[in-house]
């Protein structure tokens, strides 16, 4: 195995194009270093991209764009500004401070863990990811990028460079809620992000609901969203949304929690998320 450090995006793309599948991208390393130590991955080459300053930028004028190397800590302290509470809250629950200061948003997305905290938060903000290669560049919705348990549509020569989020909308609240057994350092048993837009009378006009750890990949529940729109976040619409959400998920028993528990916890979690969104939309 060897390691090289890229000093420009173009150099990184050249390297990826040359080495393809034999190469593993190393950013903050909080996942890759563990996988290496466990011998879960045995790449021939490690491409260290973490020095690419151009991928650390956060843009909030015009569109909201963040470079793939923006750290969880950057997000947790609110670098995206108001309107992205769910992203900040999700990033703040990824491991501890030590993981957050080096772990990157691009890494979290490409690792595509079923339990990835940031993915539901990004999904409710209609995230799109931009991938570059020597062949060019493409931008796809996040929901189409992460397609299965630890599976993305990233081609071996592509580098995820940018994540673009929807613009903040007035009278909107968002939140990320995580179920774990401790106060922190949990791999989500269930992660749920919500973003709700209300009209002046308190009626939900637009909704995004996404969940993690209840299926092979984090996903949005259009059924739940539809059930919430037109309601006021009242018990009835939440109940209907929870019912729809439960139809969209496929939780399993694993070391962290049972499928039964995951199903039990979702309705209450959704209700709590809707309440928080309503409060935040007013504030």
């Amino acid at each position: 195995m060897e390691l090289s450090t890229a000093d420009s995006v173009d150099a990184a793309l050249d390297e990826l194009s040359r080495r393809g599948e034999r190469c593993r991208v190393l950013a903050g390393g909080t996942d890759v270093m563990i996988q290496l130590a466990r011998r879960e991955i045995t790449p021939e080459h490690l491409l260290h991209v973490e020095r690419l300053g151009e991928l650390r930028a956060v843009e909030t004028e015009g569109s909201t764009r963040l470079g793939a190397l923006v750290t969880h800590r950057d997000l947790a302290v609110g670098r995206l500004g108001p309107g992205y509470a769910a992203v900040a809250e999700s990033a703040a629950t990824v491991g501890g401070l030590q993981t957050q200061v080096v772990g990157t948003i691009g890494g979290n997305v490409c690792n595509a863990s079923p339990a990835a905290d940031t993915l539901p938060a990004l999904l409710v903000h209609d995230a799109e990811v931009t991938l570059r290669s020597v062949r060019g560049s493409r931008t796809v919705p996040l929901a189409e990028f992460v397609v299965g348990r630890r599976v993305t549509t990233r081609a071996p020569d592509e580098l995820l460079t940018t994540i673009t989020l929807g613009r903040p909308i007035p009278r909107t609240g968002d939140v990320y809620l995580k179920v774990g057994r401790r106060s922190a350092m949990e791999v989500a048993i269930v992660g749920l992000a919500a973003r709700l837009t209300f009209d002046g009378t308190g009626v939900v006009t637009d909704a995004r609901i996404a969940v993690a750890s209840v299926g092979p990949r984090p996903l949005r529940s259009v059924g739940a969203e539809t059930a919430l729109v037109g309601g006021t976040g009242d018990a009835e619409s939440v109940h209907a949304a929870a019912k729809a959400l439960l139809q969209d998920v496929d939780p399993i028993d694993d070391v962290r929690g049972t499928a039964d528990y995951r199903r039990r916890v979702i309705p209450g979690l959704l209700g709590r998320a809707v309440r928080v969104c309503a409060e935040r939309a007013e504030g």
Binding site: T5, M33, H48
Partner: peptide, 21 residues
């Protein structure tokens, strides 16, 4: 966190931080 050291002032878990980095 027993292995925490500061890299350019940031606290990192040195057990999962690349030496080359």
């Amino acid at each position: 966190g027993a292995c925490t050291v500061l890299v350019d002032g940031l606290p990192v878990d040195s057990c999962i931080y690349s030496a080359a980095a």
